[in-house]
């Protein structure tokens, strides 16, 4: 094993180009477990800790450019307004110690269906900035996950950042685990309201070979909200609409039975989380509308 220690982004890209099998390591929260338990013996470890660029974020007009190694703790503390779904998801990651080290780049690089960031990124809408010595490209998050623990990165590419759409409406994230802290998702669900485009986006974790969106559920809900004029009148979403949405989210799952949970449970739980997160975000949306039209008397 060789330990490569690039001091800059350019050096990192050059190292990855020279050694495409090199395994990038930043927070180490996935890679080191595999090394400690003898599951993996990469030829090269490519340490990204000295690439300062990866630890920075930038809030733009429409989106946030989130460096691949920005720790979850930073996201929770600093980007709750811009990236509320991801901030909530970050708070559910493992433990404080892990949140201090791990970042979204690692989640994307590992591409485990159980990664906590994925549902939030899918729901918010994001692009992964993949870079190599050959150049840079942005991979839409919808195209990023290609299989179980597989992604769209080329062997010589590294993730520099993720460009995530700034929230224009409420977002939520919910994750089921069999413990009240420090738990890997049995399944997870992210939801984002996009009032400007009058759309809703979803993300499902750990309930299919890859993180997925519940597209049929989104289309159903978009149409139902549109037809009922919900975006404009801010009415309470009817239980039947919420239930149909939840059922369609459950139907979007393609889960397995494993030691963490049954396939049936995962489908069921995704449905429950879909209904609840829809309620929470919609109530929040209605509350914000009332706040801006103070006849509701809330303020």
């Amino acid at each position: 094993m060789d330990f490569l220690r690039p001091a800059s982004w350019e050096e990192a890209l050059a190292a990855k180009a020279a050694h495409p099998t090199a395994v990038p390591i930043a927070g180490g929260t996935d890679v080191m477990v595999e090394i400690n338990f003898d599951h993996r013996r990469p030829e090269y470890l490519l340490d990204l800790n000295r690439v300062g660029d990866l630890y920075e974020w930038e809030v733009g007009e429409d989106s946030v450019r989130l460096g691949a190694s920005v720790p979850y703790t930073r996201i929770m503390e600093n980007l709750r307004a811009e990236l509320p779904g991801l901030a909530i998801a970050s708070h559910t990651v493992a433990s404080p110690q892990i949140r201090n080290r791990g970042g979204v780049g690692g989640n994307l690089g590992t591409a485990s269906p159980a990664g906590d960031a994925h549902p939030a990124l899918l729901a918010a809408g994001a692009e992964v900035e993949a870079v190599s010595v050959r150049g840079s490209r942005r991979i839409p998050i919808d195209d990023f996950y290609t299989g179980v623990k597989r992604n769209a990165l080329a062997p010589d590419e590294l993730i520099r950042s993720v460009h995530i759409k700034k929230a224009e409406g409420p977002q939520q994230f919910s994750k089921v685990g069999t413990r009240n802290a420090m738990v890997i998702a049995v399944c997870a669900f992210g939801l984002a309201l996009h009032p400007e485009t009058r759309t809703v986006r979803t993300g499902i974790g750990s309930a299919a070979p890859t993180p997925v969106r519940a597209r049929a559920a989104e289309e159903f809900l978009n149409a139902a909200l549109d037809e009922g004029g919900f975006w404009e009148n801010g009415k309470i979403i009817t239980p039947s609409v919420a239930k149909q949405f939840a059922d369609l989210c459950a139907a979007a799952c393609n889960p397995i039975d494993d030691v963490r949970g049954t396939a049936n449970y995962r489908r069921h739980a995704v449905g429950v989380m879909a209904r609840r997160t829809l309620t929470w975000t919609w109530e929040s949306y209605r509350g914000a509308r009332h706040a801006s039209h103070p006849k509701g008397g809330a303020a």
Binding site: F3, I25, G27, G28, T29, V31, M32, V33, I35, N36, F37, L45, D47, A94, S95, P96, Q97, I98, N100, R101, M182
Partner: peptide, 23 residues
Amino acid sequence: EQGECGSCTVRLDGVPVCSCLVA
């Protein structure tokens, strides 16, 4: 040695981390 127990917690540049997961 898998970041699940915290018994190896140290401060790295002031920040609590699991030292088992730091190369």
